Amino acid sequence: MSDAHLQLIGEQIADLQAHFVRHEGFRRLEEDFRLLRHRREADIKAGRSREVRGIAVIGASGSGKTTAVDRLLRNAASVVKADPDHRAIISLRVPSPATVKYVGQTILRGLGYPVNGRRESWYVWNLVRYQLKERQTLFLHLDEAQDLAAKGTERERQSVVNLLKSLMQDPDWPICLVLSGTGELADILNFDPQLGRRFQPIRFEPISELADLAKVRDLLSAYIGKTVLAVDPDIESDAFGTRLVHAAANEFGLVIEIAIAAIEVALLRRATTLTVADFAGAFRRRAGCIDGLNPFVAENFRRIDPRELLAEEDRIR
């Protein structure tokens, strides 16, 4: 296969990966975020400084929460009015190890501030608060936020909770927090009722093969429609939709990933029609499995754990 053809396919797949389909979870997230933004901007305009609220986006790996938050913040950055030297929105991934000091240093780096690793934790966080105000930051997004206190002691978890509350309660410049993470994030928020009540939770629920097959078909159509591929009728059946939902571990984001991977398989074989075999090939490449453990091939596909890589047949018999 020529390099020119591979380049063309690479560009098509990159465009598909950049495509975003608005869905119920995203619309709710966007509405809550806009309300918080307008409240904060109104307070700033009126010279008020009061405690703010935050948003907690919770979902399993592959649910699409990170993609949704990234899209939200990119859209918001284009409309938030701020001086070019300011950073109205900061988005960071919680570092590992997620110590209080290291999280503060990561925020400072995100603000473009040089960090001296020898400084004490209290000094680092005083700098964080000062720099957030100087940069006129309105929102701080922390992805993989469940790692903030995943392995810490109760005392360390309380320290994290206190820091989050202090950012939202800062008398000079309160910060609206957007936290995204897996189900363990709820444990952090529930650890302290005073923190939990400050957050609006948005859960990206698993999709259901009973209730969501129509949504899955619409999603497939949205992505396939951006290609020149025709669709095999079998892909439009409920039986196929059920297999796809299972292969994606009932997660919205994984449905999209598998669909794009199947399109890539079809394009690589220079096909004109997207078939079930392309989805089987995509899952085979994704999981490194034999056909007996491929949800698009195996007769008893429900016994298969779709998240397991390089699975062996004798382990699930």
Rank of each mutant, 00 (worst) to 15 (best):
L220F: 15
D238V: 02
D170H: 12
A222C: 10
I44W: 08
S96W: 14
Y123N: 13
G253A: 07
P84M: 03
N162R: 09
L220A: 05
A249M: 03
L195Q: 03
V94K: 01
G152W: 12
G104R: 01
E299C: 09
E264F: 03
R269P: 04
I89C: 00
K165Y: 06
F20T: 04
R303V: 15
E299F: 12
R28A: 09
E308F: 06
Q131L: 11
A248S: 14
E313P: 06
A211K: 11
F33A: 14
D238F: 07
D234R: 10
P97T: 08
H23R: 05
D83W: 09
D43N: 11
L220P: 01
A230Y: 08
K215S: 12
R198V: 05
E156Y: 10
A287H: 02
V94I: 14
A4S: 13
L210W: 06
P174E: 01
G10V: 04
F33H: 02
R157D: 04
A259E: 02
E312Y: 10
E313G: 06
V228K: 11
E154R: 12
G47Y: 02
E312V: 12
V80F: 02
R315L: 14
A261C: 04
G47S: 05
L142H: 04
L254A: 08
R34H: 13
G181A: 08
L16Q: 02
S121P: 07
R129H: 12
L219Y: 02
G241L: 06
R118K: 15
I316W: 15
T182G: 11
M1C: 08
L142V: 12
S61F: 11
A42T: 14
C289F: 03
N250F: 09
I107M: 00
A14N: 14
R203E: 10
L267W: 01
T66I: 07
D43W: 08
A249E: 04
V245G: 03
E30S: 14
R109H: 10
T106H: 04
L6F: 10
R27I: 08
G117F: 14
V297A: 04
I258M: 09
D305R: 05
D234Q: 13
F20C: 06
E184L: 13
V79R: 14
I290Y: 08
P95C: 03
T106A: 14
D170S: 06
P295D: 08
F283V: 10
Q12R: 15
E312T: 10
D192T: 05
I316M: 13
F240S: 00
R48H: 08
L127M: 14
E236S: 13
V161T: 13
R22D: 13
V231C: 10
C289K: 00
L177P: 04
E184K: 15
L167V: 11
L111K: 01
A18D: 13
A261Q: 08
D192L: 06
A82D: 07
A214D: 12
A266M: 04
T153M: 07
T227L: 11
A60H: 07
R22E: 15
E236D: 14
A230F: 07
P97S: 09
R129W: 01
R197Q: 13
I207Y: 03
L16K: 00
V79G: 07
T99Q: 02
N250Q: 11
